[in-house]
Amino acid sequence: MGINRRRFFSLLLPAAALAACSRSEASEDNSGPVQDEQVGCLADTTLCIGCRQCEEGCNRRNELPRPDTLFRDRLVFREQRRPGPNNFTVVNEFPGPPSRDQPKKQATYVKTQCMHCLDPACVSACIVGALTRARDGAVIYNPDICIGCRYCMIACPFQIPSYEYSDALAPKVRKCEFCADPAGGTGADPACAAACPTEAIVFGKRSELLQLARSRIERHRVRYIDRIYGENEVGGTSWLYLYGRDLSDIGLLSLPSSAPPRTTEAIQHTIFKYGAIPFLVYGTLGGIMWHNHRKQQVAAVEDGGES
């Protein structure tokens, strides 16, 4: 819908180029390009048992190098890990008191990967459009045109994209691409969700996942905090999280609901759309220059006449 609306405006507005400066366009964009056919994943941190099979599934599907330690090695939980060039997803352990409804559970496990924002800052930031957002929500990367500026990494509010700094010739930005790699084959079911033994990760349409998440919260009032992480964060994300402890305790970032690209693109498109303002400035400066030149010439002629 959003795209269509934007296209509609963009076709309509050349007739009134100056109207580009108006705020209406920017406010339309605030709705974000949310689609009905969005897919996503619901990650339920209260169900995750920290088995790291999602990491292994991801590693296999993306044909990443095998790590030094085995995937069932739980010693990795001693430190907080971040996704890197060789692991697009990691599970971290957040030790904590057992909750009321799960007396045995001693720790919460939280999986980290690209959230596949509905309005991704990295896509908006990318200088050449090497990062693009597919209609179903996957944010994918095309290394062929990437220039390696790493602005996407600056832009990402979740600090997800990682870089192959050690590669001298053709380093790539690496991140989860929702298993949407054209060569990968399936493209439907992300490897992490398929591997999860407790189905703490559920893959499906985002709208349905939101319903599912709400119904779980409804049913287990004690277990969950009544909020779906990712529903509104930075304009909404394809990955949604259910959780039962404070966000800051389990390493999830508290983020505003506005998407960063809305600010930058509003500035960009307001100032530069159709080159209106640059033209205006150019015209004004040119006029001043012309005026001063004339004045000078007249002065010179007068001088010459007098002398």
Binding site: V123, S124, A125, C126, I127, V128, G129, A130, I145, C149, Y151, P261, T264, E265, Q268, H269
Partner: peptide
Amino acid sequence: NWQGNSVL
């Protein structure tokens, strides 16, 4: 490869 949304 134009990407007009990008500030960069």
